[in-house]
Design a protein around this nucleic acid. Structure first.
Length: 443
DNA sequence: TCTGGGGTCCTAGGACCC
DNA sequence: TCTGGGGTCCTAGGACCC
């Protein structure tokens, strides 16, 4: 932690709901709930008027409706939230080069880089107060709560103390007296499970946590977590404000209003999600080696299965094929409420080959396709026939296609690599899903 | 018909390599 | 044919955050 209160945390108040009220005057002063409106939706944000009725983030929309039936229930307009967020982040970056967004509506700002004459409490207080006004201007009326402190932890705690539309500065040296009476759940990383473990050990407040030895904490909650708790309980926090953080994974998931039982449909949905994941990878110039599927069963049991490729891919077809294969190992007979696909182990996608030429679009040679149609579900990627039999594309790039061959007897059959234009290689296209337009494939 | 979606980080066990 | 310790990678699950 620092000697001066130079870390700022800014949090836009009831962000999604506030954007809706700003853009639709008839909603102002009324309860507004933004979130999933389907049968299994949950609340993202409730306006302060809705919070009066006990509506909270993460509550099921069903429950929110029963608590506050006259609220406006909205599914959200993410482009509008993104625009507002962008305006705020741009403003913050104009004030300090060191801005760390945590989400659309929250950021840390390092005031050491803001060029202030000094970092004494009156100076940073006046600065933050003026900045709050500028945020409201830049967003045409949204308000922000701001906290200032000697570390990220303290700044974040501070921004929570006077919501909405508040400013709290925790003077250097007063951190521990602020924290000691608070419940352990103010510490980032202490959620319901950790709080319960600590409670069973007789630890409920930060003061109580402070009296526990490091060894005891590690025994209670594990090595990394225990050490973190030990230090944060003493307001010891050196984490720097970091402007750029690289994405580690990209994923898409969906919860369905009724449980899925049709495997063919599940495969189609995974294929579609794989297409969205691949599109986002490409948009950001990324590719990844590990494909993971997530399956939540009817009873909320959540399973994941992953597979790591020899080289990174951003191909919709490759991701889809692997996702479908991973699903095949799972027993979904009881019904599935959620399906998801993700890619991790990300690398910057190298677009050029050794000679500096653009890498050609992944594409399998055009060949005889059985009976259904000639369409492909994604550029060049899907089940292939080759001299060894039927297999599926396991990886591709730089003119080489790697194929894994499988049969019912050898599900993890041999892997072979082919040149992209090897005549021994041909593409097979799966038949369309029921109700699917063959000319508008999902991936 | 309680329980979203997009992420991050940690743990623990097994494989594999030196 | 046995023994071992460390490091890294991979997989599955869980906690947590907004």
């Amino acid at each position: 932690m620092r000697a001066q209160a130079s870390v700022m945390h800014l949090d836009l108040d009831a962000f999604f709901a506030a954007v809706e009220q700003r853009d639709k005057p008839s909603l102002r002063g009324k309860p507004v709930v933004v979130g999933g409106v389907g049968g299994r939706g949950v609340v993202s944000t409730a306006s302060y008027e809705a919070r009066v009725y006990g509506v909270r983030s993460a509550m099921s929309t069903r429950e929110a409706r029963s608590r506050c039936p006259h609220a406006a229930f909205l599914s959200g307009r993410f482009h509008a939230y993104r625009d507002a967020s962008h305006a705020v982040m741009s403003l913050l970056r104009s004030v300090s080069p060191l801005v760390e967004p945590l989400s659309l509506d929250e950021a840390f700002v390092d005031l050491e880089q803001a060029g202030l004459p000094d970092l004494e409490v009156p100076t940073v207080t006046a600065f933050a107060e003026e900045l709050r006004g500028r945020v409201t201007e830049a967003t045409r009326g949204l308000t922000a709560s701001v906290g200032l402190g000697t570390s990220k932890f303290i700044a974040k705690v501070a921004s929570d103390l006077d919501k909405p539309d508040g400013l709290v500065v925790v003077a250097p040296g007063t951190e521990q007296e602020l924290l000691r009476p608070m419940h352990v759940s103010v510490i980032p990383g202490v959620g319901p499970a950790t709080a319960e473990r600590l409670r069973r050990a007789g630890i409920q407040t930060v003061a109580e946590l402070e009296s526990v030895t490091l060894e005891e904490l590690v025994r209670l909650v594990g090595k990394a977590h225990g050490s973190g708790l030990y230090h944060l309980a003493r307001a010891l926090d050196d984490r720097p404000v970091v402007a750029e953080r690289e994405a580690k994974s990209v994923s898409v998931e969906g919860t369905y209003d009724t449980d899925l039982t049709d495997r063919r449909l599940m495969e189609g949905l995974l294929t579609r999600q794989a297409g969205e994941v691949a599109a986002r990878l490409r948009k950001h110039g990324l590719s990844g080696r590990t494909v993971t599927i997530k399956v939540r069963l009817h009873d909320f049991t959540t399973l994941s299965r992953s597979s790591t490729l020899p080289s990174p891919t951003d191909s919709a077809g490759t991701v889809a094929r692997i996702a479908r294969t991973l699903l095949a190992d799972l027993d979904t007979s009881g019904g599935v409420r959620l399906l998801g696909v993700g890619v991790s182990g990300l690398a910057d996608w190298v677009q050029e080959d050794l000679f500096g030429e653009a890498e050609p679009e992944e594409e399998l040679p055009q060949v005889e396709v059985p009976h259904h149609s000639r369409r492909t579900w994604a550029p060049g990627m899907d089940v292939v026939h080759a001299e060894m039999g039927r297999g599926w594309v396991w990886g591709s790039g730089r003119g080489v296609v790697t194929v894994r061959f499988e049969t019912a007897e050898t599900p993890a059959g041999p892997v072979r690599s082919y040149a992209e234009d090897d005549p021994a290689l041909s593409a097979w296209v799966p038949p369309p899903l029921p109700g699917e337009d063959p000319d508008d494939p999902p991936a």
